[in-house]
Amino acid sequence: MNNHEIDYEIFGDDMQFVQVELDPQETVVAEAGSLMMMDDGIHMETVFGDGSNQGSGLMGKLMGAGKRMLTGESLFMTTFTNEGSGKKHVSFASPYPGKIIPMDLSELGGKLICQKDAFLAAAKGVSVGIAFQRKLGAGFFGGEGFIMQKLEGDGMTFVHAGGTIHKKTLAPGEVVRIDTGCLVAMTSDINYDIEMVKGVKTALFGGEGLFFATLRGPGTVWIQSLPFSRLASRVFAAMPASGGSKDEGGIGGLFNILGGDR
């Protein structure tokens, strides 16, 4: 096994966090800003790139950092190493309501394709790269569909997704079409493409995106019910157009009506 072998436990329901147990000298790598808490004796260090190529020289580090920049992530990641004598724990929290999905890459063929913002943490040695979609034109206009993250290795990795998570296994030749934002992750043996919604009226007035992902089995796919982009758009739509708060018929709104502009 090339990756560090870590134990873990997931706590919570809708706002989950994962607690990773580290033996002496074991290391876990995580996205910057995902730390929740850690025991005394754990050394935290910021690394350039994904942390899996720190011994490959300057060019290897630049390549790893460049891949992360293309996916819209930070150029840096953070490693947490147990430098004590006994077992230590470090915890990472979800960035928004949803679920943390533990993935053992050794059981998934050593490779997983996921949304560019889905990666949360992994055992040291897991490589975080990019997976290009073949049709560049459709990928550019498809938003989430163009560049996805590629996680490679044989250790544990933790992926976060919004809302309820549905795991679907596709038989050979079976096809499913998914909103590009709802696609969380898939195994590398799935044939993946992006298609534009047919029909001008459907595309403009249907209330859905202009593109959807077409996945053909065999393989496994993970789907989220609440993409962060959808959550953010609903929050933005509910914000008042001008300064101040938007009253929705509560006591504050009643006082404003009775008191007038005083």
Rank of each mutant, 00 (worst) to 15 (best):
A171S: 15
A171P: 04
A171Q: 14
A171C: 11
P172D: 14
P172Q: 12
P172G: 10
P172M: 10
G173T: 12
G173I: 09
E174I: 05
E174R: 10
V175R: 13
V175C: 09
V176E: 04
V176R: 07
R177S: 12
D179I: 01
T180I: 08
T180E: 07
G181L: 00
C182L: 07
C182R: 11
L183P: 01
L183D: 02
L183E: 03
V184P: 08
A185G: 11
A185H: 08
A185E: 04
T187C: 06
D189N: 15
D189E: 15
I190V: 15
I190A: 00
N191T: 15
Y192G: 02
Y192T: 04
Y192Q: 02
D193I: 02
I194F: 11
I194E: 05
E195I: 14
E195A: 14
M196A: 15
V197C: 08
V197N: 06
V197M: 12
G199I: 09
V200R: 11
T202N: 13
A203P: 00
L204C: 09
L204W: 09
L204H: 06
F205K: 04
F205A: 11
F205W: 09
F205I: 05
G206Q: 10
G206C: 08
G206M: 07
G206N: 10
G206R: 09
G207L: 09
E208L: 08
G209T: 01
L210Q: 05
F211S: 02
F211I: 00
F212E: 06
F212N: 06
F212C: 03
A213D: 02
A213Q: 09
T214L: 08
T214K: 14
T214H: 07
L215T: 00
G217H: 06
G217F: 08
P218N: 08
P218W: 02
G219V: 02
T220I: 08
T220K: 06
V221D: 04
V221P: 01
V221L: 05
W222E: 03
I223K: 02
I223F: 01
I223T: 00
Q224L: 12
Q224G: 04
S225M: 09
S225F: 00
S225N: 02
P227G: 03
F228C: 05
F228Y: 14
F228H: 12
S229Y: 04
A232C: 07
A232R: 14
S233V: 04
F236H: 04
A237S: 15
A237Q: 13
A237P: 08
A238G: 12
A238C: 10
A238Q: 12
